[in-house]
Nucleic acid binder design. Structure first.
Lengths: 214, 214
DNA sequence: TTAACAATACCCTAAAAGGGGTATTTTCCG
DNA sequence: CGGAAAATACCCCTTTTAGGGTATTGTTAA
């Protein structure tokens, strides 16, 4: 499609095939300077694809099956510093934003971004600048999601916070340290969560949280 | 694009703009029978859009800001029964599958579905049949997926079986009963699984299994 | 301004998980 | 056939969870 000569080559890494394919379509309109040279759908496929194609840009999801997107970004930044990484994620992981910047990731787009924001991001990154959607937008969606969750299951804000930490596999003692609480308090919250959700194991809690996108 | 005469009209409701726009592109290829007549990005916009366009099909996300997709589906089924609803969701909400079927939703696609699955789903729904990706996930594809999983992480068939039961939140004792094994054996398998996957908690195991669609 | 809820924190106990071994029998492939 | 891998099963121990309470302090909405 694009004039082969100096097209900007892109690799897309996202496990949602419909999103991945749709993104390709969005990028390869008539007269586009971009060319999607490869699409991968799992974590372990990313590095080999980059090695093979040496694209100018990789659009990289964080939640890839098999391997964490941030780990991949770290390896790519080290081994393929010429490849510009743009993270494409559902949420604004503010915690990771600084980490990603430090790694040298120049772009961060939310999936709720518009086509124009995508173009702008690509453009800026190709100019050697940065574009971090995560800084601007982040809070709104997350707070809303939590609110929705709270309403539906009568959970409190603190309880949501603790659910997220349990999801990471942290024991009550560590969660307590992180939140500057007594371990007993964390256990009390956990008990209340189980009661409200009518469950009785961490496995069920995680299924529940995952199902609702928490 | 499509021959205006008898094109199948579609409304897309998804808050991830890039996904929404990409989906439109995927549906409106040259010679496509489909025509995207409207795109909305929040819950409250859905019903008015349906009212205005009376499309044959609405592709509806569950996690919409402002209003829950299931509620919307319920209202649409009642007030606009001619509109065929296809849920497009990130996760397989097995809990809600029956509820959705009862409401009369004929289609359920995962975002990780392929373009072909999308086409098939649309086709079947337009023929008055149903297409539930959430179900298939549990049966048809699993055997293949298991093999893939085994190869990548050196897990045995028995270990996969036990992972699935752990995922349900069952304690080792119950798993042992179910499989006619000693509890100690189940614990041994679990230890080996943790070692192979380099993890150390049930929370991490579930994340892992979910990521790989197990 | 109270009553309800959220958040905090402690007590107790039993069950289960997590982590370190070792060892036997089956199964299956070369 | 023989050896590797898988599946089975047990021992030990410590930590954590799960479930049963009670209780104090804020905050907040009726």
């Amino acid at each position: 499609m694009a004039w082969e000569g100096n097209a900007i080559n892109i690799v897309i890494a996202d496990d949602h095939q419909l999103f991945n394919d749709g993104l390709k379509k969005l990028l390869t309109y008539e007269g586009s300077p971009y060319q999607v040279v490869d699409q991968v759908y799992t974590g372990p496929e990313v590095v080999p694809a980059i090695h093979k194609h040496r694209p100018e840009i990789v659009l990289l999801d964080i939640n890839l099956p098999g391997r964490n997107g941030i780990d991949i970004a770290r390896q790519l930044a080290k081994e393929y510093p010429a490849v510009r990484i743009i993270i494409i994620s559902m949420y604004s992981y503010e915690k990771f934003a600084n980490e990603l910047k430090q790694i040298g990731v120049p772009g961060y787009l939310l999936k709720s971004a518009s086509n124009k924001q995508l173009s702008l991001c690509l453009q800026r990154v190709m100019e050697g600048k940065t574009y971090f959607d995560a800084d601007l937008d982040g809070h709104v969606e997350l707070l809303y999601k939590d609110d929705d969750f709270i309403k539906r299951y009568n959970l409190s804000r603190r309880e949501i916070e603790i659910i997220k930490l349990i999801k990471l596999g942290l024991p009550a003692s560590v969660i307590a340290e992180k939140l500057f609480l007594s371990e007993e308090t964390v256990k009390t919250h956990r008990k209340n969560i189980y009661y409200k959700l009518n469950i009785n194991s961490v496995a069920q809690l995680i299924q529940f949280a995952n199902d609702l996108g928490l």
